[in-house]
Write a protein that binds this DNA or RNA. Sequence first.
DNA 1: TACTCGATCGGA
DNA 2: CCGATCGAGTAA
Length: 175
Amino acid sequence: MGKVLPASVLRGRETVEIARSLLGRLLVTRVEGRRTVRRIVEVEAYDGPHDRACHASRGRTPRTEVMFQPGGVWYVYLCYGIHEMLNLVTGPRDYPAAILIRGVDGASGPGRVTRTLDIDRRFNGRATTRSTGLWIEDDGLVVSAAGVSATPRIGIAYAGEPWVSKRWRFVWRRE
DNA sequence: TACTCGATCGGA
DNA sequence: CCGATCGAGTAA
């Protein structure tokens, strides 16, 4: 395995860059003794109160409260009444930002990621540490820039310009 | 309380 | 293309 990704690297302001750097890292779960390890291959950044695609752009509400915490906790919410969405909160305290995990090895799509790994809202607000059962590891794998593509984010047409056009979705295609 | 709509997915 | 399915957010 690798080293647990420390919260300190998630508390920087460069959420978009942090998102890109999550590609190739390992998403690890440990629930009731069962362990899963999946490499992250697709992510999306939701960066700050001005980003109209970011849930927290409407202000601090019970649901978005977790996004205002310092980076290093999970934000998990229910989408379309069916799908659990797994996000990693980033940035300093009171700066709402998060990274949606959209794909891992063998699971493409945010709803499939959580269904495959049995991740749901019970992880909301928990830290990204071993003790919570859901964390990220870095095993040193190098992801070459040539294998990473940046595209607009999915399903956020309502956000309008310039947010719909921001290329804040990152997909890693292995060579 | 009464709406509307969504960071999606699977099936027709 | 469309329905599923439910909770957050808003207006009243």
